[in-house]
């Protein structure tokens, strides 16, 4: 037996009877004490505004250093295309190289272990 539906006015009257909480005694003092304990500590650290570096002066030395490199490249291309390469090294160098058996020579990191074993025995 619930009766007719509650009206807005009746609901407002009932809501007016709801508990009106009151701030507990000493709450403000407790909060202010917490704030005093925190003091001026700020957990937000202001980031330094980034200073834009002035643009670097482009150095002409860099271009000058590039000149011999470019000349070397051009010379290499010329010599390579003219077939003059093999005569560059002294004859003794070719003789040494012709005597080397590449399969017997060390081939890289895999040989480190064997060399280490040999040196330990």
């Amino acid at each position: 037996m619930t009766g007719p539906q509650m009206s807005d006015d009746e609901l407002d009257r009932l809501l007016s009877a709801a508990t009106r909480p009151v701030v507990p005694d000493g709450a403000l003092a407790r909060l202010n004490a917490r704030i005093a304990r925190e003091g001026g500590a700020d957990n937000v650290v202001a980031l330094q505004r980034s200073v834009k570096e002035p643009p670097r002066q482009s150095s002409r030395l860099g271009w000058l250093a590039g000149l011999p490199l470019a000349a070397s490249l051009v010379l290499g291309i010329y010599l390579g295309s003219s077939g003059a390469g093999p005569g560059f090294l002294p004859d003794t160098a070719y003789e040494l190289l012709s005597g080397v058996n590449l399969e017997d020579s060390m081939s890289g990191i895999d040989d480190v272990l064997s060399v280490a074993e040999e040196s330990s025995t």
């Binding site: 917490r34 700020d42 957990n43």
Partner: peptide
């Protein structure tokens, strides 16, 4: 209190 502490911090 915590809400006010957050305000105080920042």
């Amino acid at each position: 209190q915590e809400a006010f502490l957050r305000l105080w911090k920042n």
